[in-house]
Amino acid sequence: MWQITFRELKDRKWSLLAYCLGSLLLLWIYAATFKSSQASAQQLLEVVKGYPKGFLDAFGLNNLASNSIEVYLNAKHFSFIWPLLAIILALSRAGSQFAGEIQAGTMGLLLALPLKRWQIFIAKYATGLLTIVVFTLISVFGIIPLASAYDIPTHFHVLVGAWVLTTLFMGTVYAVSVVVSAWVSDKGRVYAIVSAVLMLTYVANIIALLDDKLSGLKYYSLFYYFNTAEVLDTGHITTRSLAVFGLTIVIATVVAAWRFSRRDISV
């Protein structure tokens, strides 16, 4: 069964490498520009001090007074670009692993093997999880050598917290995408459905932050629990975030495995 995991990792190593290098390249840019940005932070603080708190929270501008590289990374990287990269990687993996293989017909080869459906599911799911772990490790801890090259101190416990949160966030996007991928037979539909859901939850979080009357909407958004501002400032992850991400991953994984094991596959 692990031959499937090994083979998938081998087949997709170049795209994973590209994502990791892209992420490292961005971290390098942020490390290189950190010191010069500190000088202009005060000016920026003056500009945004009249803005609503919700707006600052939504766009990661709430900790500009802090002078750590981690807070700078939150404002520049983890509040928008990183989630985008993570969502694209997790969604594309989930879509191609199940619905994509059914659509291409190559799932037929796997189903002809003397393996139970759930074993095939676990083998493929493990590939996705390993991809996520490798990507988050590199895209979070990659800042340590890059920052040290510019004599910028990093805070390991903060980065550990950030790694846990980013891994949980990406794992949640992946698990939810796998549910859809195990349900349909067309990866385009997986991308469309999951993108629409994520877009809605993102908009819900923004609306909740900007309008107090609708603040309850935030609880329905994945992005509310992905609170990188706090984690990259203090290293602390709220129990609520851990519970929501953890439960979503477990429930989505069980539902996806159940669906994949029971469905008809026309290949």
Binding site: G108, L109, A112, L113, P114, L115, Q119, V267
Partner: peptide, 16 residues
């Protein structure tokens, strides 16, 4: 799963 050890399968539209 056990049976597939004893079955060789060729589909009409085998995609490799």
């Amino acid at each position: 799963a056990a049976l597939k050890r004893e079955i060789g399968y060729l589909s009409s539209d085998m995609q490799l």
